[in-house]
């Protein structure tokens, strides 16, 4: 079992990010389960979403309290929410930021950074006030999993296919942004 928690703000697409990654893992033969923190779908409010993946059918029905990986879509959340809560000691925290991983300290847990906002805007995903980074940041996830060789490993090609499949519009822009994040993530 590999468990991922997503932190975002209502309207940023954290739930969709979990679903895209679920589709990618599913296409590689894994069982998946993705769900939001239920009932708090308010624009701008801090939200979380969860993803489980496993080689066998997933029966567990509780929230994820000790994730293997955390993905933070909005760096401004770090001062509002304890994004590293419960993260396993060998876990990883992926943050959308222009900063370097060494700028963060979460009990010496591994940190990966990627400028998902910059990449998304370059690819015309959303606007300067409301950039859509949910597909982009997953590129960094695919990269770090590749390097760490984790159970949550998701191939970049499967991910790009999932991004294309789940994007309601600007499919190729989303794919290009995800790819760029994969290539430029600071691991």
């Amino acid at each position: 079992m590999y468990e991922v928690r997503f932190h975002g703000r209502g309207g940023q697409g954290a739930v969709t990010a979990a679903e895209i990654l679920a589709v990618a893992a599913f296409s590689e033969g894994k069982y998946t389960q993705s769900f939001p923190v239920f009932g708090v779908e308010r624009r701008g409010a801090p939200v979380a979403a969860f993803l489980r993946m496993d080689d066998k059918a997933i029966r567990a029905r509780y929230q994820i309290y000790e994730p293997d990986a955390v993905i933070v879509l909005d760096p401004s959340l770090i001062s509002v929410v304890d994004v590293s809560a419960g993260v396993k000691s060998d876990g990883v925290i992926i943050i959308n930021t222009t900063k370097h991983p060494s700028d963060f300290n979460f009990d010496s847990k591994k940190v990966v950074t990627v400028d998902a906002t910059g990449i998304a805007l370059k690819n015309k995903l959303g606007s300067a006030t409301n950039p859509i980074v949910n597909s982009t940041i997953l590129g960094a996830y695919a990269k770090v999993m590749e390097i760490m060789g984790k159970k949550g490993k998701t191939g970049i090609n499967a991910l790009l296919d999932a991004v294309r499949y789940k994007s309601p519009a600007k499919k190729e822009e989303n794919v290009a942004a995800t790819k760029e994040a994969y290539e430029t993530a600071k691991v």
């Binding site: 679920a22 599913f26 069982y31 993705s34 997933i58 029905r61």
Partner: peptide, 12 residues
């Protein structure tokens, strides 16, 4: 089926 825990969870 249980609300949210099943209705709002995506799975195969």
């Amino acid at each position: 089926i249980d609300g949210f825990v099943l209705t709002h969870t995506s799975e195969p």
